[in-house]
Each structure stands twice: as C-alpha cells, then as structure tokens.
Design a protein around this nucleic acid. Structure first.
Length: 105
DNA sequence: AGGTTGACTCACC
DNA sequence: TGGTGAGCCAACC
C-alpha cells in the first residue's frame, strides 16, 4: 500500500460519484478504510491528472464548502441541480454515502 | 531531523 | 452559525 495506490483508490471512488450527488473528503477516506486521511484525499484530488476527467467538483469538505481557488466549481454543481444554501455552501442533504445504491455493480 | 502548511474533521464555546 | 484549537497525515522546505 503506497501513496500512489491510495490516490488510485481515491480516483476510482470519485469517478463513481453519481450526477447531482456530492460527497466529502472525509467520507471518501472513510469508505477507503482510512478515516484519518481526509487531507490526503484532498491532496490526491489536487494532484489528479486532468485526463482522468474526475468529477472532483462533486467533492466538498464536511461543512459543504467548495474547494478554494476554484470559483467555477459552484456553477458546475448548480448545472447538475445541486442546491446551495444562502451561505454559498452545498446543502447538506446531498452530502451522504451513495455507495449503497451503487453496490449492484 | 524539525518546522510549516494544507482542496480535512471534530469538539467546544 | 461561526471561530478556535487540537488531532491527523503526507508533502515540502
């Protein structure tokens, strides 16, 4: 288990986020079995190569705040029908583990 | 080796 | 709701 594999797992999981659904770094880390590595999830996404076409705009922090340095992220999510509250954060009701309903595959 | 930083999270207040 | 401090772990001087 090296760091490259961890990133690989992150990419694999992020790629499965359904349209219009949002999750958090900590949740991803949790599903991967590394609840302490939420920050590494962020780093992995930060370093994610663009050719992977990851929907990393669907990943926010636990308070629903979007990634810094990336103003367009909000617009991308709104295009998918993700509801934002008056604080400019993602509504918490779309932040949840979606792995269950995906498990048929 | 030691200090700082960060696309994080939680407990407290 | 929001600020702060403390854990946390990997990356970068």
């Amino acid at each position: 288990m090296n760091n490259n594999e961890f990133s690989q797992m992150v990419y694999n999981l992020v790629a499965k986020i359904p349209y219009g659904r949002v999750t958090t770094y900590g949740l991803i880390a949790l599903m991967l079995g590394f609840p302490q590595n939420a920050r590494q999830v962020g780093q992995a996404l930060h370093n994610a190569p663009q050719y992977l076409d990851l929907p990393c705009h669907r990943v926010v922090n636990h308070s629903g705040k979007l990634a810094p340095f990336w103003p367009e992220q909000r617009q991308l999510l709104e295009n998918e029908g993700v509801h934002f509250n008056s604080f400019g954060n993602v509504d918490m009701n779309v932040i949840m583990p979606w792995i269950q309903q995906n498990s048929t595959q």
